[in-house]
Each structure stands twice: as structure tokens, then as C-alpha cells.
Design a protein around this nucleic acid. Structure first.
Lengths: 145, 145
DNA sequence: CCAAACTCCTACTATACTGATAGGTAATGA
DNA sequence: TCATTACCTATCAGTATAGTAGGAGTTTGG
């Protein structure tokens, strides 16, 4: 039941861009310095986010990335799904294809559906802006992000 | 974010024993036939559950397993944790040891704690008896467990 | 009493996933 | 033009997953 580093780092990257959301492009080098994640690994993560349409990129000197929407228009759920593929606790819940032949008589399936629901409600009920807000509440000075 | 087969099968095994909770010992062979899981794999799963004190076992002819408590006295959470080790979405939340050096300034940590909370509330708020009840509501005949 | 029916224990294996690192190409701005 | 940046593909060690396999010890029904 673990979120991979890609999912966790993607969230930190997006949050970093949300906090430094000036309209300018932010380089991975800068994000790397702040987040302590290598540029090379960030590249892999950012690829997924750009392909999902979450980021705009600019090549060349003084290039980088910026958010393509406002922070309040991203849910944490969609960011995590872009990296993790699925947040469902069991494959049966992903789609019809993975539905197992026992599903109609499976006594544990309703439990898993319920778990899926509480997870989905939570992650899709939290926006990137919500995370920015909690950081400001806590006092921006104490954070080095 | 997937629950492993061990966790899923453990829940099915416990639920099978809860439904056939006559006081008699139930053999893995019987459970295997009902659940479609090999006896050899069930052995591995049942070992963890027995060590956790969830089951009583009886060796030899007409031996098997039975629940050591009443179905309403098991939470699904503790059953899953016995097999999965931890249900925390990130290692930082497991214990002090795994806490990363950035934790005090980590802007995403409160989010992960919140996710951990909704998961924990759900899985520890559901008992084995709850799963038995939903099966009875749905009509016992339609289920072959 | 003994053989069948069980649990119990340890080892092994193939496959996939994770968490990276590495090297090179293409675009851009000063 | 050249330093800086995004972009692309490949590789790799380590770990976890989802089992399979073979046997040893225990109990009881016949």
C-alpha cells in the first residue's frame, strides 16, 4: 500500500511550482536544489506531468516549466494518478478488463470498493492550492521549499 | 497503492472461517476448494495469521483452523497489517526511524497524514462481522463462499 | 497400529517493479 | 556561438510479488 517515490516527488515538484508560480519558467536545476532530488530523476517525473498536460515547458537558456492551470484547479488525485497509473487498492477496481470471474460472488469486493471511495474522496478533495495554504498557515519563513 | 494477494487472500480466508464458524476446525483443503487458492499458498498466509494469534490450529487428521476470537472482534485493518506489515502510504509514517530529515519542513507530509487517517479509520472501523453481515443481506444463497 | 489426512517448515524461482543513473540530442537566449 | 536548458532512450542493481516444491511432524479414524 505504498505510494512510489515518483508519485511523492511529482507532488513536491508540482507544489514547488505552485509556490513559485510567477508565470516565469522554473528550471529543474532550481527545483532540484530546493527539493534535494537529482535533475535526472526529476526529468523522468516531469515527462509524465507534461504529457498529462499539467505543465508547460520552455527549452533552451532560461527555460523550464510552469503550471498550465491555477493551483486550485489541480486535485492531488489527478497528479498522483498521472504518475502511479491507478490509486485503486486492488486491480479488480481498475476497469472491466481486470474484473475477476468471482466478482459477482466476492464478499470482500464491497469492502474494497468502500476503501477505494474514501481514498478517492480524500485525494480528489484536496487541491494543490490547499497544500500551498497549509504551508502559508504554518508560516512561510519556517519552510525552505 | 496496491494491496498484495497475501492481504486480499488473508481477508478471504478469515471471512471463510467466520462464515463457517462452527467451533470445528476447518482444513485448508476445504478453504482451497471454496476460494480457488492453492493449499500451498494458503499455508503461507495462514502462518502469518496464526503467528499473529488470530487463529487456532489443530494438526493431524480432521485438523485445521478456526478463529480464536469472535468475528466482531477482528478489524479488517489488523488482519491486513498482519500480512502487509503496514498500511501507511509512505514510509515516513511508519515510525520514527523512517522519518526523513525533511519532515519538519515537508509541505506534503500533512497531506499524507490525512490520507493515512482516512485509510486507518476505514479499515479499523470495519470488522470481520461487518463483512459477514453484508453477505447475509445480499442473500446467502447467491454466494458460494 | 498404521496409514491417510492434516499442519508445519524451509527453500527455491520467475517475473515485475522500484529507484534510480548515464549518455546523448535538440532548442533557445544572451 | 556557446552555455543552458529540455528531451529522449537505455541500462541496472536491488527488492518485492506471487507463487511452486519437497518434505517432516502430528493426529485420528478405521
Amino acid at each position: 500500500m505504498r505510494i512510489s517515490t515518483k508519485g511523492r516527488y511529482a507532488l513536491r515538484l508540482m507544489l514547488d511550482l505552485a509556490i513559485h508560480n510567477t508565470g516565469e519558467y522554473i528550471s529543474l536545476k532550481d527545483i532540484s536544489a530546493r527539493q534535494g532530488i537529482t535533475v535526472k530523476y526529476l526529468e523522468q517525473i516531469v515527462t509524465g506531468l507534461t504529457r498529462a498536460g499539467f505543465l508547460r515547458s520552455q527549452r533552451g537558456n532560461s527555460g523550464g516549466y510552469r503550471l498550465s492551470r491555477k493551483p486550485e484547479d489541480y486535485t492531488v488525485g489527478e497528479i498522483l494518478r498521472a504518475m502511479e497509473g491507478s490509486l485503486e487498492p486492488i486491480a479488480c477496481l481498475d476497469d472491466e478488463v481486470n474484473l475477476c470471474p468471482r466478482s459477482s460472488e466476492c464478499l470482500t469486493l464491497p469492502f474494497w470498493k468502500g476503501l477505494s471511495d474514501v481514498i478517492r474522496k480524500y485525494v480528489d478533495g484536496t487541491t494543490l492550492q490547499d497544500l500551498v495554504d497549509t504551508s502559508e498557515e504554518a508560516g512561510a519563513d519556517s519552510y525552505s521549499i
